[in-house]
Nucleic acid binder design. Structure first.
Length: 480
DNA sequence: TTTTGAGTTGTTCGA
DNA sequence: GTCGAACAACTCAAA
């Protein structure tokens, strides 16, 4: 009689190293059955966006290869997890499901359902941490409440027990086998039209690629991170966000690699490492908030924002999405997003501020676009950061902080090369003119083959007027 | 309970 | 050209 296998249910943890569920399953000694379920069907479960659906098959293929090297394979199934998992238990006689805990709003109910379904089959679901440095319930204020302000939250994290040292990939001995669907049958990749060329050129999904990125970042850019991270050329970024989102690298691995590399005298971190870990802290904070306030994905955390007079303007939204606003820095960023599925943090702030404050369009519209177009689309980060920009978060940007897209361009893309890369119709414009072509002398425009309104849009809104309009709008929701 | 200090990332205006 | 103040109070977290 065949021995009961253990199902290792891979979710947003597509790696072998530092994977507590996999390690514990391996330790248990039973044959392992690694499974990934493409779940577009569990009610309330947000469907993965387009760019993430491009990333996913590369990641699954990489995991499958890594398992194959150890004699196993990744089994693929499609459907609602609460239906697929019990079917798998019945099919294979598995005694347990081991998985990494999820933190999206639907996960706790999903996990409870699976626990109950397991119980009726004398099996168990065992959940392990792995996606966060600190479990949401481990960090609380003195009175046991969730933090709503980042600084004290992060202070509490740093005072908490250090995240556990990452575990190497476990030795995997025996595997069980079951039917698997093919990756192609998931139909995740765009076919007609194939818009993913830019993504293919920019990214290589998978655990080993994530490790290469991490090493490269630590040796080349970590030290300068505090000073360079605002630069729009992307040269300062770690580029780890999609790998973190899919769990191809775990935050504990990043934390320990960074602290190890950067520990100076008496273990004090240098500025670069400190400021980078703080960014991981923002990711933690977003999950902390989402765990307590699951409605923040669509509803403002500050209730008065429910009556904010957002405009309804589909054409303006489309201009923003397509990178046709007439503000070069905004358009460059939006086109980079469309082509590569990613943009640097500074660019995200600029375009988000523009959508919310210059166009007065609801942050949810921007958040939805980001979820669909970012390869690193992360529900917690996305919701928290859009609310931060809109001013509807608890610890949000003040309403009068309205980015001037021209000044932001001049400050963070002084050479204009970022704009030239992504808005090629402006590439002949010299640096002083490139962030505000409508102010350039006619001769300069003519020499650069730029005709506003023809080869490149005239600004969709005028900055000073838009700014005044935003301040007025924000006034209406203040104090009653 | 009350008080106190502090809070990611900016811009504009006027001296 | 540079620099400080205004923008607007409010809420959070801890003492």
């Amino acid at each position: 009689m065949a021995e009961s296998p253990i199902i290792v249910w891979f979710r947003l943890d597509l790696r072998l190293a530092d994977h507590a569920a996999l390690r514990e399953a391996a330790k248990a000694g039973a044959p392992l059955l690694p499974v990934y379920i493409l779940d577009d069907e569990t009610p309330g479960n947000l469907r993965m966006g387009g760019a993430a659906r491009w990333w996913l098959p590369g990641s699954l293929a990489a995991l499958d290869r890594d398992l194959a090297e150890r004699g196993g394979r990744l089994h693929l199934r499609r459907g609602a997890a609460p239906e697929v998992l019990p079917a798998l238990l019945d099919e294979t006689g598995a005694s347990a499901i081991y998985a990494t805990r999820g933190y999206e709003p639907w996960d706790s109910k999903l996990e409870e359902t699976v626990v109950a379904l397991c119980a009726t089959r004398s099996a168990e679901l065992r959940l392990f941490p792995g996606r966060l440095l600190f479990e949401p319930e481990a960090i609380a204020t003195g009175s046991g409440q969730p933090f709503r302000v980042f600084a004290p939250f992060w202070k509490a994290c740093l005072a908490a027990p250090t995240p556990p040292a990452p575990l190497p990939a476990p030795k995997l001995g025996r595997f069980a086998a079951a039917k698997s669907e093919s990756l192609e049958s998931f139909r995740l990749l765009p076919a007609k039209p194939d818009w993913a060329g830019g993504l293919r050129a920019a990214w290589q999904p998978g655990e080993s690629a994530a490790q290469v990125r991490l090493r490269d970042f630590i040796t080349e850019r970590l030290q300068r991170y505090a000073d360079d991270r605002g630069n729009l050329d992307g040269e300062a970024s770690s580029l780890l966000s999609p790998y973190l989102q899919f769990g191809e690298i775990g935050p504990n691995q990043v934390w320990h690699a960074v602290t190890h590399a950067a520990a100076g005298a008496r273990g004090k971190l240098d500025r670069g490492a400190f400021s980078f870990l703080r960014e991981l802290g923002w990711r933690e904070f977003s999950y902390h908030l989402l765990d307590r306030f699951p409605a923040m994905t669509h509803r403002p955390l500050k209730p008065e924002f429910a009556r904010f007079p957002w405009r309804d303007d589909p054409r303006a939204l489309e201009a923003w999405q397509q990178g046709e606003t007439g503000y070069p820095i905004v358009d460059a960023a939006m086109r980079q997003l469309w082509q590569t599925g990613w943009m640097p943090n500074r660019a995200r702030m600029i375009v988000a501020s523009f959508l919310v404050k210059h166009l007065l369009l609801a942050w949810q519209a921007g958040a939805n676009w980001f979820l669909d177009t970012l390869v690193d689309a992360d529900l917690a980060n996305n919701s928290a950061n859009w609310q931060w920009v809109a001013g509807s978060g608890t610890d949000a940007a003040p309403y009068f902080r309205i980015f001037n897209p021209v000044l932001q361009g001049q400050k963070f893309d002084p050479s204009g090369d970022y704009v030239r890369t992504w808005v090629p119709e402006l590439k002949l414009l010299p640096a002083p003119a490139i962030h505000a072509p409508w102010e350039a002398p006619p001769q300069t425009l003519a020499e650069a083959n730029v005709t506003l309104g023809l080869t490149y849009p005239a600004p969709i809104v005028e900055h000073a007027a838009a700014r005044a309009r935003a301040l007025e709008a924000f006034k209406t929701i203040r104090a009653g």
